[in-house]
Amino acid sequence: MTRLTTPLSSDIIGKLEAGEQVRLSGVIFTARDAAHKKLVETYRAGGKLPVDLEGQIIYYVGPCPPKPGKVIGSAGPTTSGRMDPYTPLLIRQLGLKGMIGKGNRSPEVVEAIKEKGAVYFLALGGAGALLAQRIKKAEIVAYEELGPEAIYRLEVEDFPLIVGIDSRGQNAYLMGKARYSK
């Protein structure tokens, strides 16, 4: 099992293969629909972004609120495809290096991944209780008014992931389905 620590260098990302299981430790940021819309609108208007995404990883998640004494509530991935209209800009202009979510991406996103040597990881959809246990710290860094859609800074430990689309554009979904299709 490959163990990865953030930030991920281009060298390390280049070695990852679609379908490979990895464990990720370090800092990642959350953002989903509403946060993506705000980030892109702010960038296009020439405003200052609340987080520097250069070399960073975004986890598409809107967690449940934490129970007393807990770091975070249930926290599994949401469908990544909804972020596709914004993602190429984040990769090309803002330097985003990695994404964590579930489900397939658009051809435009795959192109941007290949061009910039980024990577798309998959987390286990619908396993929010399990994944929350690997999140050791969570703080809101922007857009608190968006509730579950705020941007959080998370510290994760051995977060279980599968390489979904690697930096060469190979796709774990297409490979897996082809193997078992009758």
Binding site: C64, S74, G128, L130
Partner: peptide, 27 residues
């Protein structure tokens, strides 16, 4: 891998039932 995933979904459901944490964050 499919078998492993199904077992993890069981583990997740067991954890949710025992801790009262939501099975999925999308409630």
């Amino acid at each position: 891998l499919g078998k492993d995933i199904l077992k993890l979904l069981q583990e997740n459901a067991r954890l949710a039932a025992s801790t009262g944490e939501a099975i999925c964050q999308d409630t």
